[in-house]
Design a protein around this nucleic acid. Sequence first.
DNA 1: ACGATACGAGACGGTTCCGTATCGAAAAGA
DNA 2: TCTTTTCGATACGGAACCGTCTCGTATCGT
Lengths: 188, 188
Amino acid sequence: MSDMTSTADEAIIEATLDLLAEGSTIETLSIEAIAARAGVGKATIYRRWPGKEALLLDALRRLKGIVPQPAGHSVRDDLVQLVGAVGRHIDPRAAKIMPCLVPEVNRSPENYRLYQTIIEPRRHLMREVLRRGVRSGELRADLDVEVAMALLTGPMLMQRMLRWHPELDERVLPERIVDGVLEGMRPR
Amino acid sequence: MSDMTSTADEAIIEATLDLLAEGSTIETLSIEAIAARAGVGKATIYRRWPGKEALLLDALRRLKGIVPQPAGHSVRDDLVQLVGAVGRHIDPRAAKIMPCLVPEVNRSPENYRLYQTIIEPRRHLMREVLRRGVRSGELRADLDVEVAMALLTGPMLMQRMLRWHPELDERVLPERIVDGVLEGMRPR
DNA sequence: ACGATACGAGACGGTTCCGTATCGAAAAGA
DNA sequence: TCTTTTCGATACGGAACCGTCTCGTATCGT
């Protein structure tokens, strides 16, 4: 083939993501099933990855979306954009796969650290927007930035991961969350 | 033994919860392991439950805590209490076990419905407190109750399930969440 | 004290997956 | 074109569990 970059690698990783998206959990996922789905011999997989763990890491890396770049007009609009990006990825399969990873994150400190490494850039972005809001006076001066981030991202992720509140519409939710947290529940 | 109520049942269910709390996922969990841990023959398990699924259902039922009864003094204090109860259970093992169930909830509509059935009473409670707040004027008249519940419970559950924000102290978090959402992020 | 019952332990055949090894066909390089 | 890799497929032994079944023992009601 003139296509240099290893058709086999691609097929194996695609098969892995497909199987995960179809409902396989991480333990259920077997090398044999991946090989069959990819139309590849098992040996071909073992020739490239030492085991399931390493293959999964490579496969999941592919799902990681691009860190969004906030427009920078108003703090409110930037927050809506960032909250809308929470738990959303380029690949539609990610929505099915992400919840499967929750148990893994809590299983070992190593996985926890890896997870934190992945989401830290996005968190950093939101922290900066919040600080900007404090400086500009759009947000209250005594704002606790860490708590504020929890208030903004928690509800969105909860909804994306397990539709915690069945009545909520996911599309308008980012706006509702941001405005709700901005204005508060007390009468003004 | 004078203790009537089936020592074996108890031992089997306890062993199941123990193994889950120690890091077994639901698929990894084997009847053989449960039997060994409980000091029980496999047949004894199959004599009481048709399979792993049914046993798990019974075991998890044991974890479900009591629905808290809000004191009813101020809406703010009631909310702090309810938010503090989100994702908390009588059994300390529940903290380790709950995240393992996230993938199951998304796997089948049946599991999703079961999950909703379990949390609905708690959600109802919070809805009532919020409505009371609207009537009494403690909360704004145009409050969207469903969104408000997401704002309050989402951050707490996120933190309990996967320590999403490593810097946050879980003990004071309910207060911080409630006050944050009550007052909002805009300057007053 | 004795028969009925429930128990633990574990053997059993069957299934699935592991990771390795082999082999002929196809591709790539010289 | 001929050699050298790389590939797919598949066989293999080993491991873990499945759900059933059979032991010999302990417990319990009467």
